[in-house]
């Protein structure tokens, strides 16, 4: 959605990183999904291949 549509909509958040943000937003009733994030195990070469293979 374009920026103005976004500003007019209810914020629906994908939280990637600090879990406390997701928890706090959730408690306030902001629709939020928390992504459990960790650095990729794959090395740079594999990351490069993945990018080329459309992942």
């Amino acid at each position: 959605m374009d920026v103005n549509e976004f500003l007019e909509s209810d914020v629906r958040v994908v939280n990637i990183g600090l879990e406390s943000f997701a928890r706090e937003l959730g408690e306030r009733g902001v629709p939020t999904v928390h992504v459990v994030w960790a650095p990729r195990a794959a090395n740079a070469r594999i990351r490069d291949l993945l990018a080329k293979l459309g992942s």
Partner: peptide, 8 residues
């Protein structure tokens, strides 16, 4: 296999 490596 891409998803396995992408997500770890």
């Amino acid at each position: 296999i891409r998803k396995v490596l992408e997500t770890g």
